[in-house]
Design a protein around this nucleic acid. Structure first.
Length: 596
RNA sequence: GGUCUGGUAGCUCAGCUGGAUAGAGCAUCAGCCUUCUAAGCUGAGGGUCAUUGGUUCGAAUCCAAUCCAGAUCACCA
């Protein structure tokens, strides 16, 4: 149990004993004591003043007295300032915590809870390479999956690949017209980039043709519809739907190139999936659900035989679920897939990592699932994240203002190499070790940069800032870890692995205690991150812990501690910190180096 | 126009289930490497928490209105 929960519980017990009535944890608040005051945690009980008809100071005195008297193993002193009750937690408590956990690499994590969650993330299109926005998505999805695992959930990571439709045909048609048989092998271009080039080519040609038609007197709408390349693309989509062999062949070949390219990217950034769904397999799903919805009178048919659901009573609009020609639409596929996921994996919760431009869509999806009475429809969760903007404005793939995922990852790794070489601390590393280190630091910087911000907020990607390795960054945390490991290597022989009392020290110094206090919060932080589906909670915490440790490090010496007892104590503080930093960074998908 | 987000230091962001003098990082300035890795530490300056009103012992935080920015409201996906 965390110290905050202990304090909560003992406060409730004390209040009940003192005032002979029952209390709950909403009757008061517990905060960390501000640094300018004496104490570790503060009880705020202004809300009790009215019902108890006592002054805050009076309640504080009685409560403080009662707590220190009845729970001396936890609380040793108190003071009251302006009605706030500041309590000092016993040094023995902190030391006991340290003794029990300093060597536990699972510290803060929870046992399996028997619940299963699916996290769907990445969701790429097969007509262009991954960009910065995908990276935010992928890092978020991966991290949330890890955070849920740390909270005892079984997690299935899934990916839905958008591999069909008019936009896919665009790159296909452009390749057919202008490709001259180019392949990744013949050009040396990564498969997804090669296909992306033809997607851009399509848009160039299309734009040109539209302009020509307009100059010949067509209005814009007609021109956009009549442009030859667009008509060819539409024909190709029809051919694809008919299963025309040469179109299928081309489709499979080009998608194959893209998948090979994606695999390289996933591999380099450390993303993986337990299950991949392809939209070409799922786009016909949901048909029988439409029928069920009709039977249940959740859906209704219009005279042109298209099928709809009326969500106006829920503050939304009417939504089509089946076209008049009987084909299904996007949302229908999603309903079908949602059900399939549940049936295949018996999941308790389904998390979708999807950009916030689909908030409306996801709201509608969940609402329809609920109205259809689908199991666990209430446990559909849209992890909505904001767009990544550039300092120069928004990214637009058609205008070529996107930051390519492979490019930015490579740039970060190169930058980490430059920094490392300038510092010259690892000259004895082998070539393989160096490569691994540059990857660890470069990717660490990148992931930390994208994950340290609240997912739901639109964020600005500032290139100069993203490659900064100082301050609130991944490398800062990695560096702190490496520095601790350096101490531990040097002191390995003298560090005792006792669990006994000989390292007990009844007078913790401020800098020592501060590290333990922050370390103690790790379990609570992991819970909070899972509840909010928010990796930035972890990023902020890990930074805070590293910073607290760095102050400790610069103020006190471990190797040359005043006494042997102090030395052992500080070694344990260091090891505990290192374990938590490693564990927390792992929840963000970031590795930590033993040296850097 | 309806709905949903967001607006906190020059910049990027925490804090938002109401609590003490609103915090970090970057940038700027001033210090600290003959002692465990200076990718570090210590300090300084920098704020009308978009605006106005309300709720109350107390509001960056809750409520309302207004302003600004973004997203969305397809027989596209």
């Amino acid at each position: 149990m965390s110290i905050v929960k202990i304090l909560q519980k003992s406060t409730i017990e004390s209040l009940s004993a003192l005032y002979n009535q029952s209390f709950t944890d909403t009757d008061f608040q517990i905060n960390q004591t501000k640094p300018e005051f004496e104490g570790d945690y503060t009880v705020v009980m202004f809300s009790l003043v009215k019902s108890l008809k006592l002054s805050p100071d009076a309640i504080g005195n009685q409560l403080g007295e009662h707590l220190t008297k009845n729970y001396p193993q936890f609380f040793t002193a108190y003071n009251i300032i302006k009605g706030f009750l500041n309590l000092t937690v016993a040094d023995a408590y902190w030391q006991d915590l340290l003794q029990k956990n300093y060597n536990d690499i699972c510290y803060g994590k929870k046992a399996l809870n028997g619940k299963k969650v699916m996290v769907e993330y990445a969701s790429p299109n097969t007509n262009k390479p991954l960009h910065l926005g995908h990276l935010r998505n992928i890092f978020l999805g991966w991290s949330v999956a890890e955070i849920l695992k740390a909270n005892g959930y079984e997690v299935v990571k899934s990916c839905i690949v958008n591999d069909r439709g008019i936009h896919i045909c665009k790159s296909m048609i452009a390749w057919q017209m202008f490709g001259n048989g180019a392949t990744p092998e013949s050009t040396g271009v990564k498969g997804d980039h090669l296909v992306g080039e033809y997607y851009v080519k399509f848009n160039d040609v299309y734009k040109q043709q539209v302009e020509e038609l307009i100059s010949e007197g067509d209005d814009k709408a007609t021109a956009e519809k009549e442009a030859p390349i667009m008509k060819a693309t539409q024909q190709m989509l029809l051919d694809w739907e008919d299963g025309k062999p040469e179109v299928m062949e081309l489709w499979k070949t080009m998608n194959g190139w893209v998948y090979a390219g994606f695999d390289v990217t996933y591999n380099s950034i450390g993303a993986d999936f337990d299950k991949t769904y392809y939209e070409s397999n799922t786009y016909l799903l949901g048909k029988d659900i439409v029928q069920q919805g009709m039977d249940k009178k959740v859906f209704y048919q219009k005279p042109d035989s298209s099928i709809w659901i009326d969500l106006t009573a829920d503050g939304l609009d009417e939504k089509i679920v089946q076209r008049s020609d009987g084909t299904s639409v996007y949302i229908t596929q999603d309903i079908g897939l949602a059900l399939q996921k549940y049936e295949q994996y018996k999941i308790d919760q389904s998390i979708y990592v999807i950009g916030n431009e689909q908030n409306y869509h996801m709201k509608v999806l969940q609402l329809i699932c609920q109205k259809l009475g689908m199991p666990n429809a209430d446990n559909i969760y849209h992890l909505s994240y904001g767009m990544v903007e550039l300092t120069s404005g928004k990214m637009k793939s058609r205008e070529g203002t996107v930051v390519d995922a492979d490019d930015i990852v490579e740039e970060m790794i190169t930058t980490s190499q430059q920094h490392t070489e300038e510092l010259g601390k690892v000259k004895d590393f082998t070539a393989e070790e160096l490569t691994a280190l540059y990857n660890t630091i470069g990717l660490g910087a990148m992931k930390f940069y994208l994950l340290r911000v609240d997912p739901k907020k639109t964020m600005v990607f500032n290139p100069a800032e993203s490659i900064d390795f100082h301050g609130f960054t991944g490398p800062f945390v990695q560096y702190t870890y490496a520095r601790i490991k350096s101490i531990l290597r040097k002191q390995a022989e003298v560090m005792t692995t006792d669990n006994g009392q000989q390292t007990m020290d009844n007078d913790l110094l401020k800098a020592e205690k501060e590290v333990i206090v922050v370390a103690e919060q790790y379990g609570t932080i992991i819970e909070q991150a899972a509840q909010e589906h928010n990796p930035s909670v972890i990023a902020n915490y890990v930074f805070n812990l590293a910073k607290t440790f760095n102050s400790f490090y610069s103020e006190l010496s471990v190797a040359n501690a005043e006494t042997e007892v102090k030395k052992q104590l500080r070694l344990k503080i260091s090891l505990l910190t290192a374990n938590i930093l490693k564990s927390g960074m792992q929840l963000l998908g970031i590795k930590v180096p033993e040296r850097m």
